[in-house]
Design a protein around this nucleic acid. Structure first.
Lengths: 176, 176
DNA sequence: TATTGTTATACTCTATAACTATA
DNA sequence: TATAGTTATAGAGTATAACAATA
């Protein structure tokens, strides 16, 4: 399939190689090879999804950077937070609550269990399920993660403004 | 590595199998095997990143569903929109403007070129670069995509409220 | 028969590094 | 030497399907 794509691209490139007077000049001619910041995006400016995507990229990057010393990523943090607030949940319950595939949660819990942050305790009432708990070490670790996460939230407030951050949380409350 | 993980998980499970009185009872006991909606998440409620992530998932799902008939995904749409608004841009310029890896843009453009929406035109001034343009077919298609995208935006407004959507766009304007 | 946890597969996206051809 | 486009690879993340144990 890759070679097919390659072939068709090369072919298209060759065909298009019949040079034209360049409509590009209509743009001022400064944008062809330049990665300047003056590229018009008005067409995307009105799209909520684009702004939200860029914001989410920024926010996750800052979260990862701020919690890099603890080596915890956003999803791991959310899993530990939910288990810490609701000890004894099953894997299905956590997966559904966070919108994670249960197949993926298996691997997330594997790594958290390897680091001795979480433990799967067989349920006495339903032997298919595990009751999820934070270990003593996990509880201590989560407390530190939360301090770092609070620092990350301050970065967000600095970036978009304290009031704007609170408004945003209100607007999106229906998604938490 | 997989078998290592499996081994350590099984071992941890066995060791933890020494049953405890279940701290879970402190939560009301209804949450263990249940995926109910009453799982406490207060701990995550104050985190902008979590709300934004969930919102972005919803918004992308709706975008993909609304534009499914056109078979266009959000990133493809943003690429065509930028090229349409700024004909003649180089691949680097588009990649930087949209925050996409230039390596990934290659494949995105491959598929758009295969569908005859975009063409790479060799630059006369810098033979390393391609000037990107929409084909006639691409322009017609983009016009239809924009109508569908506008319908998607109406879905967003229905979901979070018309005024909230506009406020959100204002708050996140610095990320577009 | 349905559900939980698990394994496996595939596809998308992200992040790199290297290669080529140009500059 | 630096840059643009390309190729390749590895790692997350997502979406499925299937399986064993259990309900």
């Amino acid at each position: 399939m890759a070679s097919q794509q390659k072939t068709s691209r090369k072919a298209a490139g060759t065909a298009a190689a019949i040079r034209r007077p360049r409509a590009r000049a209509a743009n001022g001619g400064a944008q062809g090879g330049d990665a300047g910041d003056d590229i018009g995006l008005d067409a995307l400016a009105g799209h909520a999804g684009y702004a939200v995507r860029r914001f989410q990229l920024w926010i996750f990057q800052d979260f990862i950077k701020t919690l890099a010393a603890a080596d915890i990523r956003p999803t791991q943090y959310s899993v530990m937070t939910v288990i810490g607030a609701n000890p004894g949940l099953s894997q299905m319950a956590v997966a559904k609550r966070l919108g994670i595939e249960r197949a993926r949660l298996v691997h997330l819990l594997d790594s958290l269990e390897e680091r001795d942050f979480v433990s799967r305790i067989p349920s006495a009432t339903d032997r298919r399920t595990h009751a999820l708990h934070l270990t003593a070490r996990g509880k201590t670790a989560l407390a530190q993660f939360k301090r770092l996460a609070a620092e990350h939230e301050r970065h967000v407030a600095e970036k978009i403004g304290k009031e704007n951050r609170e408004q945003l949380l209100q607007i999106l409350a229906c998604f938490t």
